Computed example of a mutant assay.
Amino acid sequence: MDNHHKHRKSIVNRLAKIEGHVRAIKKMTEEGRDCNDLLIQLSAVRSAVDSCGKLILKDHLEGCLIEAVKSGKEAEMLKQLNDSIDKFIK
């Protein structure tokens, strides 16, 4: 892992928790649990995914963007960042 992605370990850990949570929701669904319970759990997963996205954005801003500025590729990186934000915040 390169040193300008300082949040990657935390991101991987959060994704593992999200994966486990989604598996638990699937099991709840198979067991016929109440729709309200399922919706509450899905809301928690959505929030966790958004939080993970924020960490990835921090990595991008604190690492990738800084590296792009140092190497003179800031215009290309800003375009890529704008595209990524547009896709993430649909």
Rank of each mutant, 00 (worst) to 15 (best):
L42M: 13
S10P: 01
L39V: 05
D83N: 13
F88E: 13
E30V: 04
C64F: 05
A68P: 07
K6T: 07
H5N: 09
I40M: 00
K87L: 06
E30G: 02
L81W: 12
R33L: 09
I56T: 04
Q80S: 14
I56W: 01
E62L: 08
R23G: 04
I11N: 07
L57H: 09
S71V: 10
L38H: 05
D59P: 10
I89P: 03
R23W: 06
A48G: 06
L61Y: 08
E76I: 11
R14G: 01
K26V: 14
K73D: 00
L61H: 05
I11Q: 01
L55N: 15
V69P: 03
C52S: 15
R23Q: 12
H21F: 00
G32Q: 11
K26L: 11
S47K: 15
D34F: 09
N3M: 10
M77A: 12
S84H: 12
V45P: 00
N3A: 09
L61N: 04
E74K: 11
L55T: 01
R8L: 06
Q41M: 06
S84N: 08
A44I: 02
G20Y: 04
R46F: 01
A48P: 00
D86F: 14
I66D: 04
C35W: 02
C64Y: 06
N3V: 13
